[in-house]
Design a protein around this nucleic acid. Sequence first.
DNA 1: AAAAACTGCGATCGCCGTTCGCGGTTGTAA
DNA 2: TTACAACCGCGAACGGCGATCGCAGTTTTT
Lengths: 276, 276
Amino acid sequence: MAGTAEGDGTADEVLVWDRPERGARGPAPERNRGQLTEAAVRLADAGGLAAVSVRQVARELGTGPASLYRYVAGRDDLVDLMVDAATGEIDLGVALTGDPVADLVALAGRTHQVHLRHPWLVEVAPEAMRVGPRGLAYLEYALRALEPLDGLPGAAKLEAVAALNALVVMVSGAVLRARRAPTARQAAQARYLHAVAEGGEHPLLAQALADGTTEEPGGAALAGPGGGPRFARVVRRALTGLLAPDAPGGSGRATAAPPDTGSTAGPAPARPGGSG
Amino acid sequence: MAGTAEGDGTADEVLVWDRPERGARGPAPERNRGQLTEAAVRLADAGGLAAVSVRQVARELGTGPASLYRYVAGRDDLVDLMVDAATGEIDLGVALTGDPVADLVALAGRTHQVHLRHPWLVEVAPEAMRVGPRGLAYLEYALRALEPLDGLPGAAKLEAVAALNALVVMVSGAVLRARRAPTARQAAQARYLHAVAEGGEHPLLAQALADGTTEEPGGAALAGPGGGPRFARVVRRALTGLLAPDAPGGSGRATAAPPDTGSTAGPAPARPGGSG
DNA sequence: AAAAACTGCGATCGCCGTTCGCGGTTGTAA
DNA sequence: TTACAACCGCGAACGGCGATCGCAGTTTTT
C-alpha cells in the first residue's frame, strides 16, 4: 500500500528505541546498550566519528564484532545511541525566565558546550532526523520556553527550534575548526586560496583575504565559555528574526530537529568559511 | 619545519588544483579529470554520494580502480572535482543591480537550484573547505555584489557569504527531504515521535505535532523555481541581519548580555552510561 | 642508444558492515 | 521432569571499500 518497494517482512522496529533492550528467554546478556554507547562515545571523542566502527567498539568491549548485533541492529543504531546520550548531557533543569528568546539563547549556549565536548556531533550526517528519548525531552523543554508565544503555531515553534539547532551546529563547527590545529588539507586549501588571490584575477578576494585572518573567520570570536558574546549576538538575532510575527499565511512549518541532527552547514559549492 | 608530525616527503600539492593534470614525458593518458568528474557526478546524481567509489567510477570508465590514481590522489580529490564542477553550473553572468542583498538573494536562488539538481551536494561533509577554481570565481562574484558596502571589512563579507551558503545548504536539504518519498527510517522516526508524544509525558510536543504535518515541514513551501517566496524571505531576512552595520569585527561594541550559562564545562546531569 | 619519466593495471593488503550458523543457556509449556 | 523455543556469544566468512606495489609498455629527453 504505502510501502515503497520491498513490501514483505516486518518493517516495524526500525529504530533502536522501538526494539526491546533484551529478550525475555535467553541467558542474561553480558553487556548492555549503555556500555556500547559509552565505548562508542569514548572512541568518537578521541578519534572522530570515523573511529566508531563496529569492530573498534567490539574491541573496546573485549569481544567480537558479531556480538554487538545482539544489542544493536547496525552501526546506525550506535550513532542514534551516541546522539541521544550527548543530548542527555544538556541540562534541562535550568529554570525558565519567561522570556522565550533569552531562554532559548541560554539553551543554545548549553547545547553549544556539549558540541564542544563531543566534536563528533558536528560530523553526524543530517540526512535523517535522530530523536531519541532525551531528544524528546529536549524538544519539550524548548517548547516550554516558547510557551509564552501562544500566537505562534506549534509548527512554527518547532521550525524555530530546528533552525536554532542548525545554527548551533554550524557555529560549533566553526569554533572547533578554529580551535584545532589545521589539517594538512586545510593548510593546503588556505595556501591555494591565497596563491590564486595573489594572482590578480580575483582582486576583491585578495583584498578580503588581506584584511581578514587566514583562519576560519569568526571562529575565535565565537569561542569562549557560554559561547562568547558574539555567539549570543548571532543566535539572538537569528532567533528574534525567526520568531518575528509577520507570517501572514501562517504556513510556516519546519523540521523539529534534536540538537545534534539538523541540517549542518554543508559544503556549499563555494564556502569561504572553511579552515585555516 | 612547520610540519606538524610527519615531516619528510613533499607535503606540497595536497589538493588536486596544485597538481598538474598530466606529466610531460610519458604517453598520452587515455582519460582526463573531466571524464572522471563526469562519471562521478553521474553516479552521485543517481545514487547519492555514497555511490561514488573509486571502484564504481572506474567501472563507469571501463577500467580498473588502480588506473584512477593516475588522475587523482584518492577519493577526496574526486569529491573536490565534483563540487567544483557543480559550482561551475551556477550562472555568474547575471548582471548585478547594485543592491547587495537583492543580488546575493538571487545568487542564493541559483545556488539552490544547483543543489536541487545535484542532491549529493548536501551530503558532502563540511569538515574541510572545498574551493576550486570555480569556487574562487563564485567568491569573487559574491564579493562584487557586496562591493557597495565598503564600510564592512572584507572578513565580515566572507563570513556573510559563508553563512549564506550554509543557509542555502540547510534549506536545500529540507526541500529535498520533503520532495523525496520518506525513507523507511524517516517513517519510523515520525511514527516514534508521534507515538511518544501521544504518551502524555510531552504535552507541548504533542500539541505542536498536532497542528503541524507529519512530514518535513517547510519543504513544500520552500520549493518552486527560484526557490519560492518563502525561500527568498528566509534568505533575505538572515542576510539583512548578517549585514547589519553594528561592528562585527571592529570596535568592541559589546552586546548587552551574553547567555548566563555560567560555568565553563559544567552541566551534564545525565551521563550517557545509564542503561535504558 | 641509453636513461628517465610517465601510463595502464592486475594483484594484493587491511579495513569496513553485515550475515550465517553452531554450541550453550534460559525460560516456559506440556 | 521433559521437551522445546527463544535467546546469547561469537568464529568464520562474504562482498565492498580505499589505497599501494610493482611490472610491462610507451614516450620524451639526453
